[in-house]
Design a binder for these strands. Structure first.
Lengths: 236, 236
DNA sequence: ACCTGAACACCGTTCAAGT
DNA sequence: ACCTGAACACCGTTCAAGT
């Protein structure tokens, strides 16, 4: 049963192996469970960031030894993948009933983005490997259904659903670490733009004040509307 | 000159302080320079990934002590920001002359995405803080000029340029760690979809084969075309 | 004035030894 | 059969001591 080349966490091979083993794994009553470990990891990751989530810290939180964690999880990487699956499940809330398809997609994009903005520590772990986790697959199933129902092909529905997810992930990833809404950060940014060489950066210098006040919201709304319009155009 | 609260690398305050100090920093001839350190860091990061880029490894590569690195750089975080600025400079190639605006933007989006796909180790470090680096500002200046020239307002130009960058970053970030083009990975993905519970995942199960062969290219092209169409619509 | 060996306080992971 | 103390081989960062 030993693998010479260990399977990397999050790959299709890994998810396959994990779900296959789920049933015949010994299911004794015990205090320490995989679920509890993943939940605790997520709460520490969310509250204090990735660098605070160490195996020692987690063991302390769960009142067990570090070594015990490795009975349920083969590595820290694997733990992160499992914790992120839970995060996706929490972030993908079901949209309200009764909205048309455009409002529904719009609502879900905003909802998931707001969730990620509120939990920035999770964002760097939203990689391609996370797309195959159970919670992500539920989201994909629903998205595919929605887009197929309005007339897209399976291929189109997949590309469209993925493009929305991609854009939301990019929106939060590419704004990590900056608070564009903060007046102090805006002031510093204005000074940075103003101080540039006007020969090389004429536009940034000329519009320093206006540009320094631009936040991430505008770019998100522009891109989201563009994606939605593209679907409507394809339906006609 | 000592700061009680150290300025986080990549923020506007940090870039301001850095450019302000650039001139009066002692400029002796020496073998070890900030440029050399950042270049070496980037080459190690690119060739062997983030976890291989340690201060010890870097010192060994540069044949100096670890401690010497801290004479040029205050922390590993700062080093990463500086290395990434160089990476952005390398990735943002000037587009070929003579193309219309749509082709130009299209070319640049593809060009930067291809660069990132070839250097996946860099992607997790493309955060909001990286938008203010000199290389990024050059790219922003050019993008703003292009969009203003065709008739967008300064605000629209910024939102549009940012949306493109956001989408490219999202496209690579949300495909990190998976090789959707690999036949083996496709086969494993098909098996993963096929094995799902048909009651909960009817579409994924029914179209397992087709969906398992979808790559990240389709979603990128769909989103890119959508953004370009949205600009054209706004111009009318 | 400049550089660095050696230390400090951490990591993830393993395994022999306990119960 | 299950758990874990203690170790291993690493980290980033600092600073007294060298030249």
């Amino acid at each position: 049963m030993e693998d010479a080349t260990p399977i990397r966490a999050g790959t299709a091979a890994w998810w396959l192996a994990r779900t296959a083993n789920a049933d015949d794994r010994p299911r004794r009553r015990r205090i320490l469970s995989l679920d509890l470990i993943a939940d605790t990891a997520l709460s520490v990751l969310d509250a204090e960031g990735a660098e605070a989530l160490t195996m020692r810290r987690l063991a302390q939180q769960l009142q067990c030894s570090q070594a015990s964690l490795y009975r349920h999880v083969t590595s820290r990487d694997e733990l992160m993948v499992l914790a992120m699956d839970r995060a996706v499940g929490l972030g993908l809330e079901p949209p309200p009933e009764g909205l048309d398809w455009r409002r529904t997609v719009e609502w879900q994009a905003h909802s998931f983005r707001d969730f990620l903005l509120a939990h920035p520590g999770l964002v760097p772990f939203l990689r391609g490997t996370e797309r195959l986790s159970p919670s992500s697959l539920i989201g994909m199933e629903h998205s595919l259904g929605r887009f197929i129902d309005i007339g897209l092909s399976v291929r189109e529905a997949y590309a469209t659903a993925s493009a929305f997810a991609t854009f939301v992930v990019g929106s939060v990833q590419f704004n990590l670490g900056v608070d564009t809404a903060s007046p102090m950060e805006q002031g510093l940014r204005r000074r940075l733009y103003e101080g540039l060489d006007p020969d090389h950066y004429p536009i940034l210098v000329a519009h320093a004040d206006e540009l320094s006040r631009m936040g991430s919201q505008e770019e998100f709304e522009f891109g989201l509307a563009a994606l939605l319009d593209a679907i409507e155009a394809r339906l006609r």
